[in-house]
């Protein structure tokens, strides 16, 4: 007789998500930018449109096997300010997009990257940070950590002033330096009255991971698009994390992401990559995505930063 015994609590299940080939972010604006009026918004959108078209065309050309699924999204910054309620902002954005000739498939809100429906989303990502080791890191010592900071290498030695005075200054070192270092130390959060305020790069890193469909809480996906609510709430916090504006849109998640951003975000995105390079990924989720993409004839990089692309735009 064959027997089998299983306990469900011992199984770790990982939920799958639907994928587009490419997820394109159409610029990023601070709330304050919206206050500059409809005209300003229009001109921003108009500026994005040609870059978007070029990107899609190039992508299609590199994928001759059928029309790729491309979805577009826009991230609203409701974490650092909350000036304009959804009921005002969303119609404004839609109209500007329509007139500017691009379609916005999804609108997401940034504070959902910090916390959403009781899940500490940013904390989940922060928990998976594994700092890049310098040569000689053999496990015998705990990793050097400055709470709330993440660097891309080894910091300058620090210590009591007296001890330091004895030695000359020693430079920090980028772990992956080619001859010379570009050392970056990224603040992940600040703390005030016991409350954690996540930094912009940290939230943007979460945003990238959620677009890539790589975030899970106990195996479940966290940020999934929902339809546009009938009545738009007065508060952003009452909104879903991602709203689907376009009913016939391709899936929100993408095997790859492209962000069309104003050049002012260069620094932040560099920090985002410093973070993403050091987030360990769920091997199971990663492999499944790679395999699914492959089945569709698309080769996707194993590492996260290899799936993220940018175009930095200039207001000519």
């Amino acid at each position: 007789m064959d027997t089998s015994f299983r306990e469900t609590s011992t199984l770790r299940r990982v939920q799958d998500v639907a994928y587009s080939h490419l997820s394109v972010e159409l610029d990023h604006l601070y709330m304050e930018d919206f206050l500059l009026g409809e005209q300003h918004l229009r001109s921003r959108i108009e500026q994005v449109a040609p870059w978007f078209e070029t990107a899609v065309r190039t992508f299609e050309a590199r994928r001759p096997s059928g029309r790729p699924r491309v979805s577009t999204c826009f991230l609203v910054d409701d974490y650092f300010s909350n000036l304009i309620p959804p009921a005002e902002l969303l119609p404004m954005l839609r109209e500007a997009a329509d007139k500017g000739g691009v379609r916005v498939d999804y609108v997401a809100r940034e504070s959902a990257c910090a916390q959403y429906e009781g899940v500490e989303v940013a904390a989940i990502v922060a928990g998976r940070l594994v700092s890049v080791p310098v040569e000689g890191t053999d496990g015998s010592r705990p990793p050097v950590a400055e709470s709330g900071w993440l660097s891309n290498g080894q910091r300058s030695p620090s210590g009591p002033a007296e001890a330091l005075r004895m030695h000359a200054w020693q430079p920090p070192v980028e772990a992956e330096a080619r001859q010379h270092s570009i050392f970056v130390d990224v603040q992940l959060w600040s703390e005030k009255d016991g409350e954690r305020l996540w930094s912009c790069p940290m939230l943007a890193a979460v945003w990238q991971l959620s677009r890539l469909g790589l975030l899970r809480d106990h195996g479940r996906t966290i940020i999934q698009p929902r339809p546009l609510p009938e009545d738009l709430p007065a508060e952003w916090s009452a909104m879903p994390a991602v709203i689907q504006l376009n009913r016939s849109a391709a899936p929100f998640h993408g095997y790859c992401t492209l962000s069309l951003l104003d050049s002012r975000f260069l620094g932040i995105e560099h920090a985002v990559r410093v973070i993403l390079d050091q987030v360990t990924q769920d091997a199971e989720v990663m492999t499944r995505v790679v395999q699914r993409a492959l089945q569709e004839g698309m080769r996707v990089a194993q590492d996260v930063t290899g799936r993220i692309a940018y175009t930095f735009m200039t207001d000519f």
Binding site: S9, T10, G136, G139, T280
Partner: peptide, 20 residues
């Protein structure tokens, strides 16, 4: 966590980087 034939619990994995 599992209960048969004896209570057993397993934590998630945490990673550490090495270059050695």
């Amino acid at each position: 966590q599992s209960r048969r034939p004896i209570d057993h619990a397993l934590s998630p994995d945490v990673a550490n980087g090495v270059d050695c």
